[in-house]
């Protein structure tokens, strides 16, 4: 259940930010897309909208919220599951509810407001998706949004991190069927997050080379993953020196997408925006480097046996 940001701008009278701090991380989000905009359907703009912020601590975004719900760290999944139970009029164990940092009244009020909204939208950030429970926390929020559609229009959308993460996700999907966590070792895409996702592969030391594009895992990944990158031949394509480029065997300097390299960036709602470069760069684009690596690899003997099947039926 999702929508484009314009739908939120034009229609959303009930907006929830969960585990994200848009005031600091997505500074133009409130003014451009969500809270402050007036529209045909919400002529009074901010006054026509209710905003609830859910987080483990007060952030700058709190000032913009009508209601701030402070939950205990690591209790997102429990809170979301309780909300689902309340939505269905089910019993919840009130003695355990207290552990979440919220009261049953606060959560019932949340559901009442959500049901009364004409168009609700929940944004969720890394505070939800990267804390204990990870993908299940996101799943809990998405399920709640889906179930609210029995009462009113309701959508949910992740607040993605920096860079063109969404673009990578979108293109991997159309080319391979899967967004990430893919292996091509058998000549066709297979998917299993946790097994084939980059961080897990590196932590287990399951790879003997690495090509890093548009990311700085040396700054963000756990130490065993970084240690492995330093052990194996690592190639980094990046316009600047990064933690990863420092530990890599090879660093190829590339031009900056959007400033000196053209292309497409996908916004968090998967709307593609053209990148129109303003400057010229002496450095090649990422695309050109990858294309030339590909051409060089193609001149080597192909690694798949020539007499193998062209298609296989998986099972």
């Amino acid at each position: 259940m999702t929508c484009t940001l314009g739908e939120v701008k034009n229609r959303a009278d009930f907006i929830v930010y969960w585990g994200g701090n848009p005031a600091e991380c997505h500074p133009r989000h409130f003014t451009k897309y969500t809270l402050m905009q007036k529209s045909k359907f919400l002529p009074r703009g901010r006054k026509d909208r209710t905003m609830i912020l859910v987080d483990i601590r007060e952030t700058k975004s709190g000032g913009a919220a009508d209601i701030f719900l402070q939950i205990r760290p690591g209790k997102d999944f429990e809170v979301l599951t309780i909300l689902r139970a309340i939505l269905k009029g089910q019993h919840v164990n009130s003695s355990i509810v207290a552990e979440t940092g919220l009261t049953l009244e606060q959560m019932t009020d949340f559901i009442d407001r959500a049901k009364k909204a004409r168009f609700g939208c929940m944004f969720f950030g890394m505070g939800l998706s990267m804390t204990r429970g990870k993908h299940m926390n996101s799943a809990a929020l998405l399920t709640l949004a889906a179930e609210l559609n029995a009462f009113t229009k309701f959508v949910a959308m992740p607040m993605r991190g920096h860079g063109n993460v969404t673009g990578a996700d979108v293109i991997m999907r159309w080319q391979t069927g899967f967004p990430f966590g893919i292996t091509f070792n058998r000549g066709y895409p297979r998917y299993n997050p946790g097994e084939f996702s980059t961080v897990d592969v590196l932590v287990r030391g399951d790879t003997d080379a690495a090509l890093i594009l548009g990311a700085d895992p040396g700054a963000t990944m756990p130490q065993p993953a970084i240690d492995h990158l330093a052990r194996i031949p690592t190639i980094v394509l990046d316009p600047k020196v990064t933690h990863t480029s420092r530990l890599a065997r090879v660093h190829i300097t590339t031009s900056v997408a959007g400033i000196s390299a053209p292309g497409t960036a996908y916004r968090m709602d998967e709307i593609p925006l053209p990148l129109k470069p303003a400057l010229k760069s002496p450095y090649p684009t990422d695309e050109e480097v990858v294309r030339r690596i590909n051409e060089a690899v193609a001149r080597k003997p192909h690694w798949m046996p020539a007499d193998g099947p062209m298609t296989i039926m998986q099972h």
């Binding site: 999907r173 159309w174 080319q175 391979t176 069927g177 899967f178 967004p179 091509f184 058998r186 000549g187 066709y188 895409p189 297979r190 998917y191 193609a298 192909h302 798949m304 193998g308 099947p309 062209m310 298609t311 296989i312 039926m313 998986q314 099972h315």
Partner: peptide, 25 residues
């Protein structure tokens, strides 16, 4: 729809990459 159906991608015909052709499901 592709993102929503990984279980189908696992049981379907896979096109294996060759030097002249991309892989796919």
């Amino acid at each position: 729809a592709r993102a929503m159906t990984p279980e189908d991608h696992r049981r379907t015909t896979a096109f294996i990459r060759t030097q002249s052709r991309r892989s796919g499901l």
